[in-house]
Design a protein around this nucleic acid. Structure first.
Length: 634
DNA sequence: GTAGGGTTAG
């Protein structure tokens, strides 16, 4: 290849041409094969940048790269996603006469695969004569194609089998990422059978890989079966199972497994902690989360920015926004995810003003917002009633940041307008939005109709949402309650009948409180707790006190059984178990808190000198001295 | 002396 045909950056910076008049000093340090040895070391340690720098020095010194040089250096540019450097290296390979070297060919295929330049990868492969296509070449190409061109990858796999190219465990490992969505679970299971038949399953890496594939497909029992059959579990095995449980929302299982892992003498790493912290966040298990933080402080991962973000999220979701903020403020380098997490945290707690302020600070810090952070800031605005501010952000998305709003963003804005009573504008937005409105968009409108008692629009929104999400029970309950509040008992009964006919059952509402490191779970009307008797007595006492205080006088429409809703039982239990009068009690609830219970907790917070924090399905409510942080705007 | 793969946050 001539010098003229090389990409322009070849001459300016980046990699330089082999230079015969190099400095003698550099050449004296590394001579001959020493270069390759050094490159191998750097590549092995993952110091890819250093490897590329060394390669440049090598060229300057006048040394010639050979078939041993290129695999390391191609891998380095692949790992760093340096497309231009990679293409230059391809030129060097051709120039150096190494294009027929199998190791180099494989490295090139792999590199182009990582760049997602799949045609280039295919081209290198196609130019290898049929008889010289080794297992590794196939493996490299399959791994490259698997995510974007699944059928193509499967064809190659079939070709390997018809042409009797020996399979290797890595061939299988390359195929599995194509099966990590539920749609392709059958393919994954078929591969699993094949793997068992060929004996590859005894390869620990293969087993780990199938374990995580099943977990990602939501087939958690199959994942656990693979896990149970692995005789020697490494850290990665434990991590795959812990992450699998975490991704499937099996949080108590995560914490149990974490304990088992420690008992078996395997030390956790940052991947483990991420899974465990996200489960603590879901469970609201702050005490355990704090223990995990202490463990992290005692090991080398304490400063890992991933983990800091997980910690921020955990504390925010456990109700401790103060601690979340301290960790955020202490982070030397805040990433977009850090900002998103803390903004989302303030939004969840109804502190929209702070969320908005942080968003602006983020922009000043030169961080470019993405779609996710916009979802957070829009939600924060809608929870705090910052309608104009929210609309401003929504418009800026497209106009300033060229981000096309997704359905998620539209549902935030419908919520924003709807809560503010601007139902006509919300409806107008839905009619004119360029993306197809999905369930949550109509759902947001339905929710707004409940707040503003608009039965007619509610019926329209309900018909739309039920078409899109016929099994989502929440929408039926919402319309039924809208009818009840409007005094339309017939309508309410009709919806209840519809639910019955469609075989839809209400999710049981449950709440729990953490006490002495253990979660105490309550469902509505629950009498299974060992202290059930005392709990109900306490509840009655609180009811009476609230009545005496005149707090409950507006309770003409007490919903069925709301007097024994799970959050009330949890609060009664917490009050029985707490000695200090100025305590903060956190209750986690799976559904949204109902209006009756909201009023009840407000009353109780006035009677007893405790602060109550209730995390419901959408947000936090901080009750103190008779009022709630949501200002009854939820 | 060389290649191909698996677990991670908002």
């Amino acid at each position: 290849m001539s010098r003229q045909s090389l990409p322009s950056c070849f001459k300016t910076g980046g990699l330089t041409q082999p230079n015969k008049t190099a400095t003698a000093a550099a050449a004296a340090v590394f001579t001959g094969g020493k270069w390759n040895t050094q490159l191998r070391e750097l590549s092995k340690k993952g110091q890819y940048n250093q490897a590329l720098i060394l390669y440049r020095q090598m060229l300057r010194s006048g040394a010639t790269p050979n078939a041993f040089t290129f695999p390391f250096i191609l891998k380095s540019s692949a790992a760093l996603s340096l497309h231009l450097a990679g293409k230059q290296l391809h030129c060097h390979v051709i120039k150096g006469g190494c294009l027929l070297e199998p190791f180099v060919q494989t490295a090139l295929i792999s590199m182009y695969g990582k760049f997602c330049l799949l045609d280039n990868a295919h081209k290198v492969f196609d130019e290898i004569p049929d008889s010289a296509r080794l297992t590794v070449c196939y493996n490299a190409l399959i791994s490259g194609l698997i995510q974007k061109r699944l059928s193509n990858a499967l064809l190659l796999f079939r070709e390997m089998r018809t042409k009797d190219v020996p399979l290797h465990s890595v061939t299988i490992l390359g195929l599995v990422p194509g099966c990590t969505i539920p749609l392709h679970l059958n393919l994954g299971s078929a591969l699993h059978c094949l793997v068992v038949k060929y004996g590859f399953i005894s390869d620990l890496n293969v087993a780990n890989c199938f374990l995580s594939m099943y977990a990602r497909c939501g087939s958690i029992e199959s994942a656990k079966r693979v896990f149970d059959e692995i005789p020697e579990r490494t850290l990665i095995t434990w991590n795959a199972m812990i992450s699998g449980y975490a991704q499937n929302g099996l949080c108590t299982e995560v914490l149990d497994l974490f304990r088992d892992m420690q008992c078996s003498g395997v030390h956790p790493d940052e991947v483990t902690f991420v899974g465990v912290l996200s489960s603590c966040a879901n469970l609201g298990a702050q005490r355990i989360g704090r223990e995990v933080e202490e463990m992290m402080d005692h090991c080398e991962f304490g400063f890992n920015p991933y983990l800091k973000n997980s910690l921020i999220s955990m504390y925010a979701r456990c109700g401790n926004l103060v601690r979340a903020r301290v960790i955020f403020d202490d982070m030397p380098e805040k990433t977009l995810v850090s900002w998103t997490t803390i903004i989302g945290g303030y939004g969840m707690h109804g502190q929209g003003e702070v969320a908005v302020e942080l968003f602006d600070q983020m922009i000043w810090a030169g961080i470019r917002p993405d779609k996710a952070v916009f979802v957070c800031v829009l939600t924060a605005c809608s929870h705090a009633g910052l309608t104009e501010k929210g609309l401003g952000y929504f418009y800026s998305m497209q106009e300033i940041y060229s981000l096309k709003p997704l359905s998620e963003h539209y549902s935030c804005v419908v919520d924003l307008l709807g809560r503010a009573g601007r139902l006509a504008e919300a409806m107008n937005l839905i009619e004119w939005m360029p993306v197809q409105p999905d369930g949550p968009v109509w759902g947001a409108l339905l929710g707004a109709c409940k707040i503003h008692k608009n039965v007619e629009l509610a019926e329209l929104a309900f018909n739309k949402v039920v078409e899109l999400e016929p099994r989502n029970i929440g929408y039926y309950v919402l319309l039924s309650n809208i009818y009840t509040e409007a005094g339309n008992m017939e309508g309410a009964l009709r919806i209840r009948r519809m639910m019955r006919e469609r075989g839809l059952k209400k999710d049981p509402g449950y709440s729990y409180v953490e006490y002495k490191g253990k979660n105490h779970l309550f469902v509505a009307g629950d009498k299974r707790h060992p202290q059930s008797k005392e709990i109900y007595a306490m509840l009655e006492k609180l009811e009476n006190l609230a009545k005496e205080g005149g707090e409950n006088e507006n309770h003409s429409q007490q919903r069925e059984n709301s007097a024994v809703h799970s959050e009330r039982l949890a609060i009664a239990f917490a009050l029985l178990s707490t000695n200090s009068s100025n305590a903060e009690i956190l209750v986690i609830k799976n559904l949204r808190i109902c209006g009756d219970c909201h009023m009840f907790v407000k009353s109780v917070s006035k009677i007893v000198k405790c602060r109550f924090v209730v995390r419901d399905a959408t947000r936090f409510h901080h009750f103190n001295g008779g009022s709630c942080s949501c200002n009854d705007y939820w």
